[in-house]
């Protein structure tokens, strides 16, 4: 999941972690700067939808412009 916008507030990464925890979603932040955050999420489609919808708003001091999603390469054992 790629989040683009005005994301510089220090509150956003902890907010994302809390929201993922409340959804029971495992998440990894693979990139984070003031304009782009990349998350790797693993879970049912509807739950990832819920993560996206929540992050579209985020905390008050952040402005999210768009969120894009791409499936990760399937891990083979």
């Amino acid at each position: 999941m790629t989040i683009l916008g005005d994301l510089g507030a220090a509150s956003f990464l902890p907010w994302i972690r809390r929201h993922a925890d409340r959804l029971g979603l495992a998440q990894t932040v693979s990139h984070a700067d003031d304009e782009r955050i990349e998350l790797e999420l693993d879970g049912p489609e509807e739950l990832i939808d819920m993560m996206e919808v929540g992050c579209l708003l985020g905390p008050i001091d952040v402005w999210v412009e768009t969120i894009g999603r791409e499936p990760l390469a399937v891990q083979t054992s």
Partner: peptide, 14 residues
């Protein structure tokens, strides 16, 4: 259960 999304088994976290 979340009726708007009947296909989802809600995780325990919710």
């Amino acid at each position: 259960r979340i009726p708007a999304h009947p296909g989802l088994t809600p995780p325990d976290a919710i």
